[in-house]
């Protein structure tokens, strides 16, 4: 049976990260209120009604991501509105994985129409589609935003959990960004990313995962340095394209390689045959796999 749990206000993500760390204590996952013990995704939808955008918070977010502050929300901003629900869901006792250690692989946002700053929104989050993967398992975290009954925005985050790979590669999961590499997009912009970018974005987006905050906390979790938030790389890329985005569109990105901070990255974009845009974010120095590739497809 589907359970819908309505929260009266956005939970604080700092406390939830405390909860998220609990499953890292050996044996803790056996406790019923700690995530990581269940074997299937919970049939649970978390909702937050009557969400209104705090302009001061939005301004801070726009500044960190490079968006010019308009009357319409930056396309990636509703993800921030949904983030406390993501954390609440993934730290719920019924959730099968510990939140820390999950990897965001792919993200698709569909903006059905621009959302203006003053609108009252409702946000819903659920997890679905648990799939086997050669190196672990994957699932999808879906965020939907409504204005009244009208669906205005949705986000599907494909998330990977490393583990014993039991199954074959998931079938039929087409990657809309697969063709981007073949376009050989030449980068045209270089961005110098400071070592504190993860803290700055973490603060405005509420995502204070230790892998983003400091080289030392990142090292504890297996990264050589702090890494930029994937959703920051998506947001910054879309900010670079802000003047060329249509009103209604889908934007898919694949997070291919973490951005280790500080660094200099290069960004490039090109128009696609379908009247959309393709873009890449890569290291400015090494000719390695891009950090991010993405596609904007008008609705």
């Amino acid at each position: 049976m589907t359970t819908t749990r309505q929260l009266s206000s956005a939970p604080g993500t700092l406390g939830l990260y405390g909860r998220a760390a609990l499953p890292m204590i050996p044996g803790a996952s056996r406790l019923p209120f700690v995530a990581g013990s269940a074997s299937a995704l919970p049939d649970l939808t978390l909702t937050l009604p009557e969400v209104r955008v705090d302009v001061a918070k939005l301004q801070a977010y726009a500044k960190v991501c490079g968006f010019s502050l308009r009357n319409d929300l930056p396309v990636t901003y509703p993800f921030v509105l949904g983030f406390p629900l993501h954390m609440a869901l993934m730290t719920d006792g019924s959730f099968p994985f510990p939140a820390i250690g999950l990897v965001h692989m792919h993200n698709r946002i569909v903006q059905h129409r621009p959302i203006s700053i003053g609108e009252t929104l409702s946000v819903a989050v659920r997890a679905d589609n648990l799939q086997p993967h050669p190196k672990g398992r994957t699932f999808e975290l879906t965020t939907t935003v409504r204005a009244g009954d009208e669906l205005v925005w949705e986000d599907v985050a494909a998330i990977f959990r490393a583990g014993s790979g039991k199954g074959p590669a998931p079938e039929g999961s087409e990657d809309p960004t697969a063709g981007v590499g073949a376009l050989r997009i030449a980068p045209t912009e270089e961005w110098r990313l400071a070592g504190n970018l993860g803290r700055r974005y973490g603060f405005v987006a509420g995502d204070v995962n230790p892998i983003h905050l400091h080289p030392l906390s990142a090292k504890l979790l297996g990264f050589p340095r702090a890494i930029a938030h994937g959703m920051w790389t998506k947001a910054r890329s879309l900010a670079a394209l802000q003047d060329r985005l249509p009103d209604a569109y889908a934007v898919d990105v694949r997070f291919q390689r973490p951005v280790l901070l500080p660094t200099t990255v290069a960004f490039g974009s090109t128009e696609t045959d379908g009247g959309g845009l393709a873009f890449v974010l890569q290291s400015a120095s090494a000719k390695a796999t891009p950090h991010l590739r993405g596609v904007v497809a008008p609705a």
Partner: peptide, 13 residues
């Protein structure tokens, strides 16, 4: 209302 808005943001708007 525009306390942390830049000149360029306002001119763009």
């Amino acid at each position: 209302q525009y306390s942390s808005v830049s000149n360029s943001d306002m001119l763009a708007a």
